[in-house]
């Protein structure tokens, strides 16, 4: 396998995608969220779980989808492999800032702990570190 880091990016984003898909479905159908920490429901029912009327997981769904698609396209041809790494880093960095903000809201405003928000933060950290290190290795891209 030529590009292991891209596979890591793809796998992380895919896990994030399914988490966001599950949460979006539950939010949009006003259904409970399976939660081991007890905090997810508190977050879901908070007015802060929506931005401009759009549930927060929907933003995650868009971000993760973009990264999954771009990581996949990078394996299709060399041109994409070179050109799509920076956009992946940009989306991942944006996601990291967004995710950090959401965890801040959970911990300090809603005063609870949401397992999904925390896992998403870890995924975004992983995505930024992996894409950044790949970018460092290939300075010409």
């Amino acid at each position: 396998m030529k590009n292991k880091k891209n596979a890591v990016i793809f796998a992380l984003a895919l896990v994030g995608f399914f988490i966001a898909l599950y949460l979006s479905k539950q939010y949009l159908s006003n259904s409970p969220v399976l939660c081991f920490t007890g905090g997810c429901e508190k977050v879901r029912l908070s007015p802060l779980s929506k931005i401009a009327g759009i549930p927060v997981p929907v933003f995650g769904l868009v971000g993760y989808s973009l990264i999954v698609i771009m990581a996949f396209l990078r394996t299709v041809n060399v041109e994409f492999e070179k050109k799509l790494l920076k956009p992946i880093l940009v989306v991942a960095f944006g996601g990291l800032v967004f995710s950090a903000y959401n965890n801040f809201v959970d911990w300090f405003i809603i005063k609870t702990f949401c397992q999904y928000c925390f896992v998403c933060l870890l995924i975004m950290i992983g995505l930024v570190i992996t894409s950044k290190s790949e970018l460092k290795q290939s300075p010409t891209t």
Binding site: M1, K2, N3, N6, A7, F10, A11, L14, V15, F18, A71, F72, R74, T75, V76
Partner: peptide, 20 residues
């Protein structure tokens, strides 16, 4: 189809399988 593409497809299938 490159080897990398095949690996990603396997990752996607395994993830979907686990979720299912």
């Amino acid at each position: 189809m490159s080897n990398d593409t095949k690996v990603l497809l396997v990752i996607a299938l395994v993830t979907i399988g686990v979720i299912a």
